[in-house]
Design a protein around this nucleic acid. Structure first.
Lengths: 254, 254
DNA sequence: CAAATAGTGTCTGTCAGACATTATTGG
DNA sequence: CCAATAATGTCTGACAGACACTATTTG
């Protein structure tokens, strides 16, 4: 846009593109990472599952479009969607990523606590949660977007307080640990996890009145709320995998 | 793009957008972080400085467009530009960010070793390096893009081997340390810096033949090349600032 | 009581920052 | 010799992982 354009140029002289948003909406259900998908009703990829999303309106930012689409496809209230953390992932611009026309897509990730199935109605009729491991080949380049999103979320858990976004307003440290274990696909030592979470200033704050809640049998756990910090100091680093010496994951836009 | 579109819809029914790339090209000169800017030759913002960039061609990806524009504006060879690390930052979509028309811009960051001034010629005639601290108000929302880019680069230095991209093919550890100090705006302890860099597998590799090079007077330093790793284990963490207890920097898309 | 989950305490090796010291060059 | 930069070594405190142990609930 800073390249000198011809004097008195006509906007239509530049190639028009369609711009969409695609949403990778995650939740943790039963110790598995799930993603919200919609079934396509028409070609191309009719019958295949895809990330929810849609076209930007003429005077709408991508983030506004993402919230609007999310509300439409999940049936969540505008207030919930309005307060939600939306993380811009990256933008996909391969010329042939949509066979119909030139489409540039801005991808976002969103994290939700475990919710009931999206209520049928409007666009949400065909939406459901899928285990990320079981989600088959998706439409367009959405497999790639989903993989990028998973990587990014996993990386962000290390140095941000994002994990609480997967939890309800009040949660136990066991539930928070479950989020980390599910997204990272590892098991963590409970005492050490507690120590790190409680030592990170502003990550969580204890809920005063000693109400407690149980997750079945066993000792009831203390409840916490998300703290006021957004970044995590010190970071809660992922245990070094038994694998590669030095690889280069995506993600990390810290 | 997954929102059900009307059956047999016409692409022109959807709002057309212009898509551009904007480039934050950084280098370290004389212990200061510099960015490549171009002076605008026409309205809007005539005479103001802006990030280099330009419109996507009809069948070109954003990264291809970024490399093409970079070659045009800096006069760098296609081979250099082709091997360069380009980091997609984020996409800016505010509806009024360009007063002329609806423009969505994909921003990239690039890191270069200290180079001579861009050769005049073609679009590069008005390009020059600016100290990031002295760069005045830029055109459009480029101040914001530049600030985001600086944050991101700073964060990436912590957990990636990106810093070597600021250095020539063979460099000393003092030069590498200078990169960190300049981007982060802090001073680092040299012995500790050496230890961490040399302990990070694949970050740098010593150049065999004991050639040495000097940066003035003082003991000549051993030379190193970039290693084969792209991620840094363990990360080289920024010293905790004397400031805020917990803030939320941009950056970090790790 | 057994099983399951929550929570506390401790030990030990590693690594961080801080800093002293030596080495090698130019002026 | 002095200044400047490079390189090595050492000390100490903080923190990580590992793990033993206690507490509280359900069946």
């Amino acid at each position: 846009m800073s390249t000198p354009a011809p004097e008195g140029y006509d906007p239509h002289a530049y190639a028009p593109f369609a711009v969409t948003v695609d949403l990778a909406v995650f939740t943790v259900r039963e110790a598995r990472l799930h993603v919200l998908l919609v079934e396509r009703g028409q070609e191309p990829f009719r019958g295949r599952w895809a990330l929810p999303g849609g076209f930007l309106l003429p005077r709408e930012s991508a983030e506004d479009a993402a919230r609007r689409e999310l509300a439409e496809e999940t049936g969540l209230g505008q207030d919930t969607v309005g307060a939600l953390h939306l993380e811009q992932l990256r933008t996909y611009t391969a010329p042939d990523r949509d066979p119909r026309m030139r489409v540039v897509s801005v991808a976002y990730a969103a994290l939700l606590p475990d919710l009931p199935e999206p209520r049928g109605g409007g666009d949400a009729a065909s939406a459901r949660w899928w285990d990320t491991g079981a989600a088959g080949p998706l439409a367009f380049d959405h497999d790639r977007i989903l993989a990028d999103a998973h990587d990014r979320i996993g990386a962000k858990l290390e140095y941000s307080c994002l994990a609480t976004a997967f939890c309800p307003a009040e949660f136990t440290l066991g539930e928070l640990q479950q989020v980390y274990e599910t997204v990272w696909g590892v098991e963590l030592d409970r005492p050490n996890f507690r120590r790190k979470v409680l030592n990170a200033p502003g990550f969580v704050q204890a809920v005063e009145g000693p109400p407690r809640r149980t997750g079945g049998r066993g000792k009831p756990a203390a409840l916490y709320r998300a703290g006021d910090a957004t970044a995590l100091h010190p970071p809660l680093l992922r245990p070094p995998g038994p694998d590669a010496p030095h690889s280069a994951p995506e993600g990390r836009e810290r």
